[in-house]
Design a protein around this nucleic acid. Structure first.
Lengths: 211, 211
DNA sequence: GCGTACAGACCAACTAGTCGGTTTGGAACA
DNA sequence: TGTTCCAAACCGACTAGTTGGTCTGTACGC
């Protein structure tokens, strides 16, 4: 139990390779060769290459969905909830970047029965964001003109897009990136009144308060 | 010349299929069968399946890059330039959605020599956005705290992400979506002073001017 | 008659998955 | 402690099916 089991080694190796070459750019033979395993070892742990792909998807979406639900429960105002969700979302990149890349790039290749399960969770995640946005508008923290769907999908899009450019050893820490996102997003959503709220302004990059 | 040439039919068919099943989910045989052509016809028009993929990438990125450059030249203030670029970007989805889907999903499978050319143009596009953002900050239209790279990549991300959800027959027109994006983006970037500027406020959804 | 555009049978390479066999680790027993 | 035994873990040569690409031939416009 001390040393890493084969299944984990396979997943890790596959992740690295999939991230770089894509699901179809990597053969099962290559995966097993690269992690010092065999065809038999692979198919002992996975029913098929598709199941491995599903597993990678599931680990990530389950994790991030839990984080969002926790954040939602932990905080009580729409602004705090949103910021916490975004922060948890961004921070996942630190651990799960390869997962997220595969998740965003290779989902089309999931077999129908797997795709269905993943999409259900993906949909749940979206609905949490929408819900928080609706609550924020309701509570007059967010501008009434904000279109919930577009704003929600924009947030999901801009964060997810990180998989195209985020480098763990880049000039900005993951916390700084999360803070920058929250600043941009809050400025686009908040009413002028809400921006002056002390509880809220701590999430903004500049606290100088414009008059 | 009146009726559609084979090459165009192949591209069109391939696009529809790639969008739905992914590049590796579609065989050359399937493409030619679906558009009433033959293997010979395909390889007469394309050196390889890879070249077809490259062609699809190139058509889109060339088009959208031109649009951005035109918008940059046509307008003279950062805000107007940015809005025009975003609007042109969003509007491309109306015509090129399948191209964009393939562009965002299958780029990893481009052969190195093709990938290089595409990435050069992709990089150019990014730099135009960054440039406009820097100019906006310089001109005090955009907040000085805005991190150029993050903001630029966020914009690119949120718009590109449309390929995951945009339906041409959805409830909102492409113009409404573009306007919503511009509203969100400008609110996140503009200084309080700039928001009160008449030239600028026409890009915001609400003109009621908050005190 | 000549080159361009296309047809379709064919091929060679590749790849996911199989299957009989071997190793290993630990439970049960003496 | 040593031995037996079994099932789970793992190995790797093999296969059947698939797929990008080729090659020979043909139709047609000029």
């Amino acid at each position: 139990m001390v040393e890493k089991q084969l299944k984990d080694r396979i997943i890790e190796t596959a992740l690295t390779l999939f991230e770089k070459y894509g699901y179809h750019g990597v053969t099962v033979d290559r995966i097993v060769a690269e992690c010092g395993a065999s065809k038999g070892g692979f198919y002992h742990n996975f029913k098929s290459k598709d199941e491995l792909l599903y597993h990678i998807h599931d680990v990530f979406i389950t994790y991030v969905l839990n984080k969002a639900q926790e954040a939602y429960v932990k905080y009580k105002t729409p602004t705090k909830r949103l910021c916490a969700i975004i922060q948890s979302f961004v921070k996942v990149f630190h651990i799960y970047k390869p997962h997220i890349t595969v998740f965003n790039q290779e989902a089309a290749y999931l077999k129908p029965e797997y795709a269905e399960k993943i999409n259900a969770k993906r949909e749940q995640y979206k609905q949490i964001i929408f819900q928080v946005l609706r609550e924020g508008i309701e509570a007059k923290q967010f501008r009434t003109e904000v279109p919930v769907e577009i704003a929600g999908l924009s947030i999901i899009g801009m964060v997810n897009w990180m998989y195209k450019w985020y480098k763990p050893d880049g000039p900005m820490s993951i916390e700084q990136i999360a803070a920058a996102f929250n600043d941009l997003i809050l400025h686009s959503l908040l009413t002028e009144e809400a921006k002056r709220d002390e509880d809220v302004s701590s999430f903004l990059l500049s606290h100088v308060g414009d008059k």
